[in-house]
């Protein structure tokens, strides 16, 4: 085996080991609570366009009020009951629907999903638009009702003791090397002078 072939083989082995390390096992993701999930609505726009549907999921981000109306974003993905920060297993991208509804209905939402919150799970009823004429061709649901199925909650931002120990240890090593570099540099310069 030539030196080049050996080097390529070693590099490939190291690459496989490096990439294989750190793989997180995928569990069974939480299925969508809807008869027709957001994925189905996006995959078959013509089939559902203009139809009355019920759509449930976690409200995320914020309510953006525009006069008497508001925009909500409702996710029916693998994280609508429990998100990754709470320990949910990875289950792919977020998916959901934008919902246009009266602002007073949006006021019923207490928690919006983000890093520190699991949002309220709500169910809305309304008309699905694959390309809404009123909203510049956006895919949305114009809802006329909203009910809170389950109120969300605050997610505790836990720090792991092992991570803290690693952070302290590595930070000390980094500071040590920085000081050594500065000290060494000064020593060399002093010596040259």
């Amino acid at each position: 085996m030539s030196r080049l072939s050996r080097s390529i083989a070693v590099a490939a082995l190291l690459a496989v080991l490096a990439l294989g390390a750190g793989c997180r096992a995928a569990g069974t993701p939480e299925p969508s609570p809807n008869e027709h999930s957001s994925t189905e609505l996006i995959e078959s726009p013509k089939e559902f366009d203009g139809s009355e549907i019920a759509f449930a999921g976690e409200v995320i981000g914020e309510a953006m009020k525009r006069g008497d109306m508001a925009w909500l974003h409702i996710n029916d993905d693998a994280y609508y009951v429990k998100n990754v920060e709470e320990g949910a297993q990875l289950g792919g991208y977020n998916t959901g629907m934008a919902v246009w509804l009266p602002a007073d209905l949006a006021d019923r939402v207490t928690y919006f999903g983000d890093y520190k919150h699991e949002g309220d799970i709500v169910e809305v009823e309304g008309v699905y638009n694959a390309a809404c004429g009123e909203h510049g061709g956006d895919t949305d649901i114009h809802a006329t009702s909203l009910s809170v199925v389950e109120t969300g909650h605050v997610v505790v931002d836990k720090t792991h003791p092992a991570k803290t120990a690693w952070a302290i240890g590595l930070a000390l090593l980094a500071v040590g090397l920085c000081v050594a570099d500065r000290f060494w540099l000064r020593g060399v310069r002093g010596h040259r002078a």
Partner: peptide, 22 residues
């Protein structure tokens, strides 16, 4: 106040500095 993420960045900064100054 995202303390777990703070640790993530302390570890990552330290690794960059260890490589850089090393």
């Amino acid at each position: 106040g995202e303390w777990d993420t703070v640790l993530d960045f302390v570890i990552s900064i330290a690794l960059c500095m260890i490589f850089g100054f090393g």
